[in-house]
Write a protein that binds this DNA or RNA. Structure first.
Length: 698
DNA sequence: CAGGGTTCTT
DNA sequence: AAGAACC
């Protein structure tokens, strides 16, 4: 054995019980079944990329005039990040706006609450990296890990060992000494060149600068990437692992050790990284259990065998807003509606169908003022999910608002006073619909080099739509991407086929409803008997929606509409699985993001999102059904359909508000009518949010 | 903690 | 569903 000291190869190998005899082979076969070829590298080359003050860079790209001024990105009353001009003047991340203006009166502020542009740019960066190497893992919007071990192995095979050098910094090493060390760490040396090339690609193609760290695992790559701050890169050599770990000012600085963990460690008397390194394993296990204890101890030593897991398409989409105070049902409903319409729009562009909806709130309370969110979730009925990606997502908004309000009333007693400071709406359990829906890029990527037992979760769906042929080469020709990257096959069961079918054979909302059977129960209203469609429904009630309502409301509605002439309610127990839709090809719109890669590079990466649910067909324009009110005593401007979908107590809540407004009965407007918006339509932005959208104008 | 995300574990 | 972690 050569002198290996504390190199992580040694530690990692010890702990995973791999015998380290195959020293010259870059790979070690783990597990007894060689056939399965779960091959893991003995030493990896991991890159960590971290974009400089990301939001600020995006805004400076959008408006170059901001380049040279001190710029802060503001969310609510906080500067979440700022450019380096502002930093020179003392502005720091997460500083309050008042403090920042204090430090730097000329500070220019740009609102950054809408993440759309950041998210888009963020995925362009990830996609660009993906065009070079399949193993890319996102961490937040501005960081990416890339495992380039294989690429390095290939390059190494055909690079002369002589005159290797490092690009950029080498941690704790004078540049004069670095060259001497290059030959003993050829993988990392080559890795530093790859990192430089990728950073250059990000800069030339996207205009963004950032830092990179090059090391043998994710932990070290991340730690080292920040050592030289704007727009530089640093390589960490194994012999410096102890240095970099020891240089951390506290346990909290270890990625993976958050506030709670740091506190528990402190309770054990541990404050420094060395403390943890030297702490008796048994005691640590007693506190954290074996798995967490092992992980913590390893992290303190700079050991991290966690793989770079391809992130793929997001597993959930959410939208939230925070505020000082929200305390009326009406406000809540409006906010939810607003959040939902933008979320649904995002969901529609994504192309997948969500099957779970979650509503999260944060209640104000003197103690525990922060943290402590509360959430409720429920399955999304299929027909609602389908509407999200269909042309008339307005329907989806309406129905999901009512779903959301039901969840809301499970958390908040709307009769009592309440005080919210945040609302979040979230779609999860996202399922890819339709076999060719994701376009050729991703369908092939499902099957490339199949059948490794270790399947990476997530499909690639809207991201990384890249066939095996589209291999970027970083200038060096003929680097291919053989094996690797196992994706789970697309789920295209009958249900998803049906989903697509139904949508494409779309017929205007109300007209086409032969009353589909409610997919039995739905929003988990404890064993309620769902009133079946064999009952007669009031004319203004969509049977699908009706089936979702709490039984009390259903009964109310039935009672209040004594004589509804009803079409016979047939219940086709199976959806008519008629025509498989022909999927529109993705020639469509802006869903199709294409990189303009230099043809001279001999590489092109094509990205396409899933085809959008469909441009609004002429026939699909929702037939505004002006129905008679269910008569209760709704204000003239309230669409009874919307109203009818709300939970009972919210209906009464709103009714009382309306009654206040129209002094039919008691209470002379204790609350300001606040009908600020009498001006019709033409709201700024095409959104025209607000519930008023669903109200009739009279 | 702030703010608007996101993922993973319990 | 909550907690913890990351940005």
């Amino acid at each position: 054995m050569l002198a290996m000291e504390n190199s992580e190869d040694e530690v990692e190998a010890d702990e995973t019980e791999w015998k380290q005899d195959l020293k010259d082979s870059p790979f070690v076969v783990s597990g007894s079944l060689n056939l399965l070829k779960t091959t893991t590298p003995a030493h990896r080359v991991i890159l960590h990329f971290d974009l400089d003050c990301f939001y600020a860079q995006v805004e400076m790209l959008r408006n170059p005039a901001l380049r040279d001024v001190p710029l802060g990105i503001q969310q609510k009353y906080i500067i979440v990040t700022c450019n380096y001009v502002a930093r020179q003047q003392g502005v720091a991340k997460l500083m309050s706006v008042t403090d920042a203006k204090d430090k730097c009166p000329q500070l220019v502020l740009v609102k950054g609450e809408d993440l759309t542009h950041y998210r888009e740019m963020s995925y362009q960066v990830t996609d660009l990296l993906l065009s070079f190497c399949p193993l890319v893992e996102r961490l937040g919007f501005d960081e990416n890990y890339v495992d380039i071990t294989e690429m390095i192995a290939r390059r190494l095979a055909r690079t002369p060992q002589a005159n290797l050098s490092f690009k950029g910094h080498v941690y704790n090493t004078a540049s004069a000494d670095a060259d001497a060390k290059a030959s003993s760490h050829p993988e990392l040396a080559l890795g530093s060149h790859v990192a430089a090339e990728l950073r250059e690609a990000i800069h030339s193609r996207l205009g963004l600068t950032g830092c990179a760290g090059i090391a043998a695992n994710k932990l070290l790559a991340k730690l080292v990437s920040g050592t030289f701050k704007p727009n530089q890169q640093t390589t960490l050599l194994p012999e410096s692992v102890d240095d970099i770990m020891g240089a951390l000012s506290g346990l909290r600085k270890i990625p993976g050790v958050g506030h709670q963990t740091a506190k528990r460690l402190q309770a054990l008397g541990l404050v420094s990284v060395q403390d943890l390194q030297l702490f008796p394993p048994t005691d640590l296990v007693r506190e954290f259990g074996a798995p967490a204890a092992t992980r913590l101890k390893n992290l303190s030593l700079g050991v991290d065998d966690s793989p770079v897991t391809p992130t793929g398409a997001p597993q959930s989409l959410s939208d939230e807003d925070s505020f000082k105070k929200m305390s009326s049902a009406k406000e809540v409903m409006e906010k939810i509606e607003q959040l939902l319409s933008s979320l649904i729009e995002r969901m529609r562009k994504d192309g997948r169908q969500p099957h779970t909806f979650r509503l999260t709130i944060r209640k104000y309370s003197a103690t525990n003022k922060w943290h402590s969110r509360e959430s409720r979730q429920c399955p999304i009925p299929n027909h609602v999910g389908q509407k999200i990606s269909s042309a008339s997502s307005d329907d989806a908004v309406v129905q999901l608002v009512s779903v959301a309000m039901k969840l809301f009333s499970k958390m908040v007693d709307t009769h009592a006073a309440f005080h919210l400071t945040l609302i979040n709406v979230c779609f999860s359990n996202l399922q890819t619909r339709g076999p060719s829906a994701s376009g050729r890029g991703s369908i092939t990527s499902f099957f490339v080099h199949g059948s490794s037992p270790k399947t990476h979760r997530r499909d690639s769906s809207s991201l990384a739509g890249r066939g095996p042929g589209a291999d970027n080469r970083l200038g060096t020709p003929s680097e291919t991407t053989p094996e690797k990257t196992t994706k789970s096959p697309p789920s295209c069961d009958a249900a998803t086929l049906w989903a697509k079918t139904k949508e494409s054979t779309f017929v205007p909302a109300e007209a086409s409803h032969p009353v589909t059977s409610p997919s039995s129960t739905t929003c988990r209203d404890h064993g309620d008997t769902v009133i079946t469609a064999t009952h007669r429904l009031p004319p203004n009630v969509d049977p699908d929606v009706f089936s979702l309502l709490p039984v009390e409301i259903q009964k109310e509605l039935l009672l209040e509409s004594p004589e509804s002439t009803r079409q016979p309610c047939h219940l086709p127990s199976e959806p008519p699985l008629t025509s498989i839709p022909t999927f529109r090809n993705i020639n469509n719109t802006d869903e199709c993001v294409v990189y303009e890669l230099d043809p001279s590079d001999g590489c092109a990466a094509l990205h396409q999102q899933q085809p959008p649910g469909g441009s609004a067909l002429p026939g699909e324009t929702v037939a505004e059904d002006k129905r008679l009110s269910c008569d209760c005593e709704l204000p003239v401007n309230v669409d009874p359909k919307v109203f009818s979908e709300l939970p009972a107590d919210l209906q009464t809540e709103l009714m009382t508000e309306w009654k206040q407004r129209k002094p039919l009965l008691k209470v002379p407007a204790a609350k300001k009518p606040d009908r600020a918006r009498e001006k019709k339509g033409a709201g700024r932005g095409s959104q025209a949010n607000s519930l008023l959208k669903y109200f009739k104008h009279t």
